[in-house]
Amino acid sequence: MFALKRRIAARLLAATVLAVLPTGAAMAQDAARIVDGMAGRILAVVKAGASEEQRRREMTSLFRDNFDIAAIGRLVLGRHWNTATADQREKFMTAFERAEIKAYSDRFGEYAGHTFGVGKVTAHANGTSQLVNSALSLPSGAVVRILWEIAGGKVVDISVEGVSMGLTRRSDFSAFIQQNGMDGLIAALARKGG
């Protein structure tokens, strides 16, 4: 963990030195700081042995501070966003946010004994976002690669070992909407969010 901190510090220093050049380096620095800050908060909560209730509260504030939920919700609905009514969109957003927070807080409950490190930051091919490389080391010695897409200072997608959470959700929701309609999706998400 200390080695990681040192590496991050060194990279931040390098980024600062380069900041005379364009804004790219500064953006990378911000993106890395966002991910590192979030990971620190999550691991602190897990380490403290927080209850499910506390974990969820922390996750809710973390999610609202750092995730662009409006952009994510729109993206995961794909073409169904265009056909949804204003009322459906609003209800979907509320239910989706709750379900995601629940899923993430359950997930982080299992992270005891894991360590997290932030690596290189690269610019996304779309020109507007930054990709932050990171790795979660499991007690078994296995390593899970997590890539964070940051745009406008907020997380818009997470990719785990090459699998984008946003894209997986979009396929999942699209199949569900075809079977159960938009209102069916909203109701199912509301049940998930608990």
Binding site: T122, L131, R145
Partner: peptide
């Protein structure tokens, strides 16, 4: 290491 930077969406 480079080459892992891509995202699906």
């Amino acid at each position: 290491s480079p080459g892992r930077a891509e995202i699906g969406l």
